[in-house]
Each structure stands twice: as structure tokens, then as C-alpha cells.
């Protein structure tokens, strides 16, 4: 006797014959049709012609409702993600040493623990998780902004997420900030984001 090979759905992770009991059934069907057309035929083609009795009809209806609810939830989640902001905060530690705190990553389907490893590998610094925030050692705000944008595009398929850079308030840095902001205005568009963040902070 050989092992039984079960085909699992990539969308809902269930074995394919249970896809229609999942909350994402429509997406599952599309996936199956595209990737395993033979299996799709086997599962769904003869179903439409069958006479359905009262009971199965009821079940199907309730399943449809469930799916709709899930869809709404997904939509809201996506909206949340689109609206949420990632804040990169620069914190001055000692005179010339800075650390970076990244806030607002937990809304996205990313694994913070893995991400922290990735950061520490990529930037060759220490990176740790403190209450859902990533803390990196070193003044890396600019690099991280680019990296996060790229990461979100690749891993989550999300574009145009707002990334805001903030410098933690301190007396010493205030002057620098003003100078930097002035420089940014002089430079024009390239650092426009920075200026915006700065204004928010003051207001």
C-alpha cells in the first residue's frame, strides 16, 4: 500500500474537497481551476446538475453568508493596512549614538521575529522586539524606509503605505532639526515626506 497523496489548497490550506466549507471558497475555486483543472472538474462540474434537497440547500446558503462576512472582514483588514502608518522614530541615546524604533508593523502580515533577524542581518546591527515595536541600534532611518517599502511590496503585495520618519524630541536635536528641515525645503521634493512629518510633530 502506498501513501495517499492529498492535494491541499494554497488559499485556505484545507484538503481541496473541503474548500467549499471554508470562508474563502470562491477564491479557492478560482485557484483550483487555474492550477489543477482536472481536480476542479472532478469536484465541481457534476454538482450543478444534481438535484439538491432542502437540507443541503440550507447548508449552502449559510455557507454563502459566512463567506460574505469573511469577505467584508478581509476588506476591512486591507483598508486598515492601507490607512495605517509606519512610524520610524530616531531616538538619541548618547551624544552621537542613535537607535531606531519602528512602530505600526503589526498590522501587516509579517513575522516580526523573522523581520528582526532580517534587519540585523541586512544592516549588521542588533535588532530586538519591544512590545510589537522593532528597535534597531544605529542611525539607519533612511535605509530602513527604503527597505520597508520594498519589503511590503514584495511580501504583502501592498504599495503606497505611508512611512513616516520622526525624530524624538530633545533640546539638542531641535536646532539640528530646524536646519535639516530648512535644507529639505531648499532641496525640494525629494525629502518632502520629512517635512510633512516634522510639521505634524510640531502641531
Amino acid at each position: 500500500m502506498a501513501l495517499v497523496e492529498t492535494l491541499y489548497c494554497k488559499i485556505c490550506t484545507f484538503p481541496v474537497d473541503f474548500c467549499d466549507y471554508n470562508k474563502k471558497a470562491t477564491k479557492c475555486k478560482a485557484w483550483l481551476e487555474e492550477n489543477h483543472p482536472a481536480k476542479y472538474q472532478e469536484l465541481y462540474s457534476n454538482k450543478e446538475n444534481e438535484d439538491v434537497d432542502e437540507k443541503t440547500k440550507k447548508v449552502e446558503e449559510s455557507l454563502k453568508k459566512m463567506e460574505l462576512r469573511q469577505e467584508k472582514k478581509d476588506k476591512k483588514e486591507l483598508e486598515d493596512q492601507q490607512n495605517s502608518k509606519i512610524i520610524i522614530k530616531t531616538i538619541e541615546r548618547t551624544k552621537r549614538k542613535r537607535s531606531i524604533e519602528i512602530q505600526g508593523l503589526e498590522v501587516f502580515p509579517l513575522n516580526l521575529k523573522k523581520l528582526s533577524k532580517k534587519f540585523s542581518n541586512k544592516f549588521a546591527t542588533g535588532c530586538s522586539i519591544v512590545d510589537n515595536k522593532l528597535v534597531l541600534q544605529g542611525d539607519l532611518a533612511d535605509d530602513i524606509e527604503i527597505f520597508i517599502n520594498q519589503l511590503l511590496k514584495e511580501e504583502a503585495g501592498l504599495d503606497d503605505i505611508k512611512v513616516e520618519k520622526v525624530v524624538a524630541k530633545r533640546k539638542k536635536t531641535e536646532e539640528e532639526l530646524a536646519a535639516e528641515a530648512a535644507a529639505a525645503i531648499a532641496n525640494g521634493t525629494s525629502t518632502a515626506k520629512y517635512v510633512k512629518g516634522d510639521e505634524n510633530k510640531k502641531a
Binding site: L3, V4, E5, T6, Y21, K55, V59, S62, L63
Partner: peptide, 26 residues
Amino acid sequence: LKFVHKFSRGCFKSLQVDKGAIKFIL
């Protein structure tokens, strides 16, 4: 369950439920 799926049904002590029950079990 992924382990269970690898073997044919005869290998285990099994029972079967009707269609109506699936939704509740899941």
C-alpha cells in the same frame, strides 16, 4: 491531520458523518 491524510482510510479506526455536520465540526 496532515499525518492522517497520508494514509488510506482503512488504517485507522474511523467513522463518518453526514454533510450537515461538516460545517459545525469545522
